[in-house]
């Protein structure tokens, strides 16, 4: 470097092992063939991940079948295994799980109830929005016009002291319930409502009722200026812990022999509740439907997916850098499906 006076260029990806590490974290590690997965398929997925033309921002790919971790690889550094990673909008799916837990405890049993019926004060000056129901919030149909780029800047940087009133002061693009429009405001309103009604934030609920039963000890979940957990993004977890959340869905809400999330909620959340034609996938309660694989997926910006293929009893995680632009190959759910395809075809 000193001779040519150049800063050395580095490699984005390194060919680390794909054999899962044995750790004391509730994951049982196994060989793919023991779980009836053809290793050649996983090798093909590995090569796709390491393609020079795609998945530049990928950090990790993990695969579990039959509740056994069979594939685990990190493209940058194996230290990523023990780091907390921001999963962007995959956070919404955890908000959904907490909502399910709360419903199982007797909260929010009627999803057709309006948010205003629980919390009238913020709606006093917003009568048009008082018709927004919990179901609208869960299915991105509140009608509030607050796009996600503005949401990130205004909620994280500007930090309004009364986030709920701030969100509700935004204009409407449609009457409540009329139209799907994917945005962060809806899950965030739901998060604030949970705090208001239960006296605990989503993060507090998740810590004891979701993460603890899954054996997740380390996480970070951001808050707004009023202390509400960010309902749409801001959750950081370790890769193997993220995969546990996928396994929880596959097991219909059961983890370590305990019903953590009601089975009925999992069923509702992971079936079509909204048609999202503009995006190309139908939407449950903060989950995306991928019917060609009998699967559902979370979808976080940059390429962060927890993919649950029920028919194959497979859970996958693609973890990527969270703040890259969406033009990269590998950052959208359709980009990930070819990898999914080779893995599922390898399942006997």
């Amino acid at each position: 470097m000193w001779i040519c006076a150049c800063v050395p260029d580095g490699s984005l990806k390194h060919r680390h092992t794909s054999t899962p590490a044995v750790r004391d974290d509730n994951w049982i590690v196994d060989l793919p063939q023991n779980q009836n997965i053809d290793s050649a398929g996983l090798d093909a997925a590995y090569e796709m991940l390491h393609s020079p033309d795609a998945f530049h921002n990928a950090l990790a790919l993990l695969v579990a079948r039959n509740n056994r971790l069979v594939f685990e690889t990190y493209t940058r550094t194996e230290a990523d295994r023990d780091r907390l990673h921001h999963i962007q909008s995959s956070t919404k799916s955890f908000t959904s799980l907490v909502m399910g837990i709360l419903q199982g405890r007797g909260y929010f049993t009627d999803l057709n109830a309006t948010m205003a019926s629980y919390w009238p004060e913020p709606f006093e000056n917003e009568p048009q929005k008082s018709a927004i129901t919990l179901r609208h919030l869960l299915t991105m149909r509140s009608g509030i016009d607050f796009n996600n780029d503005d949401f990130s800047v205004e909620m994280y940087v500007d930090g309004p002291k009364n986030p709920v009133s701030y969100i509700l002061s935004k204009p409407m693009y449609a009457a409540p319930g009329q139209q799907f429009y994917y945005r962060d405001a809806d899950p965030h309103l739901l998060s604030a409502l949970i705090t208001h009604v239960t006296g605990k934030t989503i993060s507090m609920w998740a810590s004891k009722q979701l993460f603890a039963p899954l054996g997740i000890q380390s996480y970070f979940w951001g808050e707004d200026a009023a202390g509400n957990t960010m309902g749409a993004s801001g959750l950081f977890l370790k890769p193997r812990d993220l995969l546990k959340a996928g396994q929880l869905l596959l097991d219909n809400g059961v983890a370590n022999g305990r019903q953590v999330v009601p089975k009925e909620w999992i069923a509702q959340a992971t079936t079509k509740q909204s048609e999202a034609k503009s995006i190309g996938f139908d939407f449950g309660y903060y989950y995306w439907m991928v019917p060609e694989y009998g699967a559902i997926s979370t979808w976080g910006h940059g390429g962060n997916f927890i993919f649950v293929a029920r028919e194959h009893n497979v859970v996958m995680l693609l973890l990527s850098m969270p703040d890259t632009d969406d033009k990269r190959i590998g950052s959208k759910l359709p980009d990930f499906l070819p990898v999914v395809d080779v893995i599922l075809k390898a399942c006997r």
Partner: peptide
């Protein structure tokens, strides 16, 4: 480890 989602601007 940067836990703040958005720092720009």
């Amino acid at each position: 480890q940067r836990f703040v989602k958005q720092e720009i601007p």
